[in-house]
Design a protein around this nucleic acid. Structure first.
Lengths: 188, 188
DNA sequence: ATAATTATTTATCATTTGTTAAAGGATATA
DNA sequence: TATATCCTTTAACAAATGATAAATAATTAT
């Protein structure tokens, strides 16, 4: 059984038939560091399960600056949601920060399975719920504290992740410049 | 037929039986200006359709300041999503800024209808998709421009709404203080 | 209408953050 | 090892924003 199937089975109980049909649709792909899994203007046709590596989910804003929605690490699901739902070109990119192995299912296959199996429809609902609540939390986090507090909080809650991302990327995630982040770090 | 039912029928085609069962579950409520439809620490048990009025969806951040997710106006769906999904107390409030009339369906009723009718399950999927993509857009908007540009943009795209909300609320929505917004307005 | 309350603007000063440039470290490549 | 490249820090200055208080305008209540 694929890791993706195993992962979702622990979240939503899938009946045997639904599970095996889901598992059959899973494909695997590998990427080198610095490659786009979803590039600008492409259509995101899949939901991905991240087996290995780390991914930066971001866009370039009106001032030409990089804004990071979030990072994804092992054992997480991701997709460029707006593009995935409407199957139209995305402005939101998925870039590998390390060598990456993913498993994925296409929207078409997932839609077909949703129509066929109620348990997979429930899985789909769960994945959308997580996408929505994660964005709500991300927005709240960004609006909740001054940047120094956001930095301290990030270090506390993501000590492992700190070792895998650059301070430049962290600054963008926190919504400040790298110079500003250096100042915050120096001020301790 | 309730306005809520009519509204969703235009988005997702519901078979006759699903539609009438959905319609039977809809309830109505009225609120005066300045009342909470969802108050802090309460559990949000419903999805609402806003028939009349305007609502502020917000929370109080770690520094004690009000942060506005968004405003809702007539003919829109809303719920305090995290609380609704997990049925746990919310930190996100829904406050009426005008007299309000809503129609709503409970989570329990909706879940039952989802299990029974695939078309309603699709409706549920649609509503979650919108919640997620709306938050993605809101986040992007907030991170895309300097505050003066965000203000100009808001005025352009929400000229009707401008007449119904206070500048203090608008400032909070834009992520700045009211004093700062006054400066931006004066600088024109 | 008058008073009281609330909303908005203006002014002043302090703080934060951005910008630019340069310097120092670290890492990768030949 | 030496060189080049990338990442991070530091410094100096400018711009934006916050905090506070006071003044003005608008709204609500008596």
């Amino acid at each position: 059984m694929n890791e993706f199937t195993n992962y979702v089975s622990k979240i939503i109980e899938l009946d045997t038939k639904a599970q095996s049909e889901f598992d059959l649709k899973i494909k695997t792909a590998e990427f080198k560091k610095g490659q786009f899994i979803v590039s600008e203007q492409s259509i995101c046709r899949n939901i991905y399960y991240l087996k290995l590596g780390i991914i930066k989910f971001y866009f370039i804003n009106a001032e030409g600056k990089e804004v990071i929605f979030r990072f994804f690490t092992e054992q997480s699901l991701f997709t460029s949601l707006e593009s995935f739902i409407l199957q139209k070109p995305t402005a939101h990119m998925m870039l590998t920060l390390e060598p990456v192995i993913v498993e994925y299912i296409s929207k078409q296959d997932l839609d077909e399975l949703c129509a066929k199996h109620h348990s997979i429809s429930k899985l789909n609902t769960y994945m959308l719920s997580m996408a929505a609540t994660n964005m709500i939390r991300r927005f709240s986090e960004l609006m909740s504290d001054r940047s120094s507090a956001r930095y301290n909080n990030f270090v506390l809650e993501n000590s492992q992740l700190m070792q895998r991302i650059s301070l430049g990327d962290l600054a963008n995630y926190l919504g400040i410049t790298q110079v500003s982040l250096s100042r915050i770090r120096a001020a301790k």
